[in-house]
Structure formats: C-alpha cells, structure tokens
Write a protein that binds this DNA or RNA. Sequence first.
RNA 1: CGGGGUGUAGCGCAGUUUGGUCAGCGCAUCCGCUUUGGGAGCGGAGGGUCGCAGGUUCGAGUCCUGUCACCCCGACCA
Length: 606
Amino acid sequence: MSALARRGDLLRLSTLFVRTLREDPADAEVASHKLLIRAGYIRRTAPGIYTWLPLGLRVLAKIEAIVREEMQAIGAQEVHFPALLPREPYEATGRWTEYGPNLFRLQDRKRADYLLAPTHEEMFTLLVKDLYSSYKDLPLTLFQIQTKYRDEARPRAGLIRGREFVMKDSYSFDHTDAGLDAAYQRHRDAYERIFTRLGLEYVIVSAMSGAMGGSRSEEFLSPSPIGEDTFVRTAGGYAANVEAVVTPVPDAVAYDDAPAAHVEPTPDAGTIDALVALANANHPRPDRAWTAADTLKNVVFAVTQPDGTRGLLVVGVPGDREVDLKRLEAALAPAEAEPAGDADFAKHPELVKGYIGPLVLGPQGAQVTAEDGTTSSAIRYLLDPRVVPGTRWITGANVADHHVFDLVAGRDFAADGTIEAAEVRAGDLAPDGSGPVELARGIEMGHIFQLGRKYAEALGLKVLDENGKAVTVTMGSYGIGVTRALAALAEANHDERGLAWPAQVAPAHVHVVATGKGTEVFEAAASIAEGLVAHGVEVVYDDRPKVSPGVKFADAELLGVPLLVVVGRGLADGVVEVRPRAGEAETLPVADAVAAVTARVEGLLA
RNA sequence: CGGGGUGUAGCGCAGUUUGGUCAGCGCAUCCGCUUUGGGAGCGGAGGGUCGCAGGUUCGAGUCCUGUCACCCCGACCA
C-alpha cells in the first residue's frame, strides 16, 4: 500500500505565505534556529515563544501524526486538557509552590488563581479518579499532544528550549507493579519506533527520576554538540545521563601496614595544587610522587530542603576531581544545593577554609538530637564512592596551614554515607564493566519514567482490587518534546545551504522549479506539479515568474524538500532533472517524470 | 540570579569616541525596461518619533541621569 494520500497538496511559491531571508537573524546561534527562521518556518513572537508559519506547521503536523499513530498502536487513547488550569489541583500536590518561578501564573477577573500548565500529571490523575474505580478498568493509558508553558529563566536556541512548546505526554495507570513495568516497556518500544520513523538518531540513556520519585527512568537523546544534556556511553553498550552515572566501587584496601595519621605543617596550601607541590617538597613518598588523587577534598554546600530548612553538607571527593553541582543536586533531589557562603562558614568556626578535614565532620563531628530522639551529624558528611575503607589520604587538619597525612578511611574516619557528586570524566569505567566511558552531548527529546504512586497518593486515586480493597494506582509518565524533536531534526539534517528534511517529516515531498523564460517551461512544470499532486505527492512549486534561477535553487535548498525537480533548459531535449536535496542530478524524459518521481517519493517514504 | 553584550526601516548593519548636510548602506518591498541554469542590471519609489522617559544645549542616535527590552555564557527542564 502506498504511503501517499489520494491527492497531494500543491504549494505555489508565488502565493505561499513565506518569505525567505538571505541573512541569518542576529539573535540566533544554532543552525536549527537560524535556518527555521531564514526558511520561513517560524517567527519569533516573544522570548522563547514562536509563531508557526505554513511550512513549519506542516512539519509539526507530520511529527505529531507519527507520534499519535504510535501511541494509538500501543493502545493509548487521546484526550485533550486545557492549557489554562485552576490552581487547586496543583495546590493539592504541592506543585503550585514547588514549581516556583517557572510556572506561568495568572488571575481571572475574580482574582482566582490560574496557571498555564507546564505538565499535566494532576489533571490526568484526577480525570481517571473521576471516572474509574475498579481494577477491572485497568490497565489504562491516556495521552495528549498539548502546548505547555514554562517560564524558563533562560530560553535558548530557538525551539530547543522555549517557554511555549508542544509536548506529547502520556500516563499509564495500573494497579500492580508488573503492570507498570509492562506499560513502561510498551512506551519504550513505541518511542524507539517513533524516533526511527522520524529518521532521527537517538541514544537511550538511564536517567535520574529525581524529584518525581520514580524508580526506573530513561531519556531519549539526539546526539548533538548543541545539546543541553551531557551523557556517557561505552563501546560495550552502557549509556547514562551524567547525573545518573554510578561510580564503580573499588575493593577495600588492607591497611594493617599503614602508618598512623600524622599532622604536618603545610603553610599556604589552601589549594590542592599548592598542597601537592608542598607534600612532594617536604614529605616525599618513597615509591612515587604525590598527586591530586592522593588528597581528599572536602567541599561545603548549603542544602535547602523543599520545606525550606537549610543545613550544611560537606562532600568529600578525591582532590583531582571537582564536585559536579548538577550531579550533586540530582543526588540530593528534591533538595537544592549551592556552594556555602561566608555566612555559613561564620556559623561553623570548626570549618577552616582550605583546611577542612573529616575529623570535624559527620560521625566525627558534633551530633544533634532531633525531637524524636534520633541523632544526626551537625554537619552531614558524604563521601565519593571511591573513598573505600583502607584508602589513605592527605586532607585538611581543620587548623589553618596544617594537613593530616595517612588518614585512613574506615580506620580514622567514617562518613554519613556516600554520594554520586564527583564529576564524570572521559575514561572513567562504566559500572556494568563495559569499559571506559566517553562523554557526549545530546538534545533530550523524550523521557519515560515510572512515576509510581506519588500523584495517585497525593490526589487519592485508588481502585478496588479483587478483594474489594482500595489500592493506590501506580502510574508511569512519558513525554516527547514535539517542537524540540522538530528542532533536533533540523539540527541533524542541514548543511551550509539550508535544511534537508527526511521525507517523512518534510513540508512537501518534491520541490518543482521552473527556470528559463517563455511560457513552455512554466506550462511543463505546472503540468508535472499537478500530475504529482494527482498521484498523492505533496509539491512545492516555484512558479514565481520573474525570479532568477539562482534565487530559486537557493530557496529550494534552504527549504529542504527532499527531491528537487528542475524544468528548464533540458525541456528543449524533452528531459527534466531530478535530484535529491543532497545528491547528484539525473535526467528523465518529460513524459516519464510524474511516474518516476512518484516512485522515488514512495521509495523515500517506505 | 551572577557575568558579558546589544537596542537606528521588515531583516542585517554603519553612524555615537570628537554634539551641527547624520537619517545612511546592503538585502527585502513597489513601478518601468532589460535579464533568465546558481542569490541579475539600469532607472525610479515607499518605509525609521534612532528602545522609552527626563535632563544639558541655540542645537542630541551622538553628552548626562533614570528606566525598559532583548541576546549570549553559567545554576533548572520535553
């Protein structure tokens, strides 16, 4: 069966609402942004907010159609919520406040609070609660393709990160964990089909479910240097967002022969570099030189919990690594962390800047007793997983200008736990044993995760099970950034001349150019264009009469329609040219043009 | 929120240091003629309260004060 419709669309450039620009817009940095503006697909309306012109809207609709088909294929049913929502449901889950300044808020004439939805978990949950009450109704998967609003602090890169964007979000509802697993896997498979059909290279990386409180979570990234996400992968198949990378834990080391810890004067060694230099000068190792990796760096952060309480956290990492704030926050979510300020240090005189060591931290430091009788460290101390028992360190002695040497983990100090906060570097070993990782960047186009019962609990979504007992429903949440996928497609499919869409999402299949003077070329070109349309092919026809060939070719390359048909000087010999957007031209007899080009289009869509 | 930068015609820019033929250039648009296989030529035309508000001055894109907006780099997310 042909992928073509019964009749295609004919877009005449003489009347199509488009104006191409010869120069890049000044405010665009990335290729997709520049080209989508230059080719007349979108126009900027406000920061991070874009108007869709006919060509852009056609591409968007094709992407949506593919997403919709594949969602329906896994049994998901489409619904559509308002983008404008009342405050109450978001109040119930705490997100009215938790979402913070990223939430677009407004009031109606009665001063009632509303919001422009950044995502619709609450609404889906409440809708199912409204209609369903039995396990027999489950499993259920609902989805919508909706415009979402987030008042991003910094919109960037055109469609890559906008304040208004189109997202497909779906939610699965099950009463068993096994059901959730199955729904998750169905979505994962569907996403693979979607991105394959879009003609987009993708990498599935494990992700942090973070604040959403789920268990399993993966992201679909389009590898691209302009992507905002950093991920790691190995030749052996491991792939993870840097935030989710797990550090392999080394074996514990025997320390029977380790000398006792000893404090040494280290004047002006407040930095790791200075410390290493000084250690090598004054306390050389017999076997090799000291390196930064022999030092234990203790970095102080202020951590703010969602309820507003603030406390100090010290993270201990090998001195050759920085603490990656993104990884730290991902590990601490939903709490937020920031480097400790002068005020924090002032409250804790035991923290001597540049000379902080484990002996005043965590279990070694002061303890506080909570109302319920449990005790915890006054200054929480978490270690990098590499700091295993038996490892020896040079680290701060908590006295200005002094460090302690041969401080042995497990013998001389302990911590309140470990944390994945150290930076990930190329060459680090993957946790699954598949070898060293490489780092790359990608555009996050999709995210699937097992939400669990968080929203169902908060909003009281329960069903009666086989025993007539009310059980809380478990949910999965699955998103695809539709407008972002369009931008990722533009990023992945362009050259210096313009866009180059895969046929499945291109605004049209064929771009017919009539060049030359005289009415014959235009009559022949129009006849071919109409013939193609009659066969179901979507055609852009450049019928502009007084436009030079150079302009027409340049516009064709800018617009990025996959096949170009040139009707011009060859007409005298009874031939026209066909050439792919990035490929060699070949000539065809005029009489065969419609059939041959139609066949090529069908080949591209297959 | 921290750092950097920019606001002059639909788009891209010059002019601001050194107040006074400074309201300009290219692209785009409109009219006429020519041109028609790689962003054409000639002639003509329309279009800007120089981000906004005060101030200095005989005179302000130009100097002063304030203010707003936007873009880029870092902390958040589809």
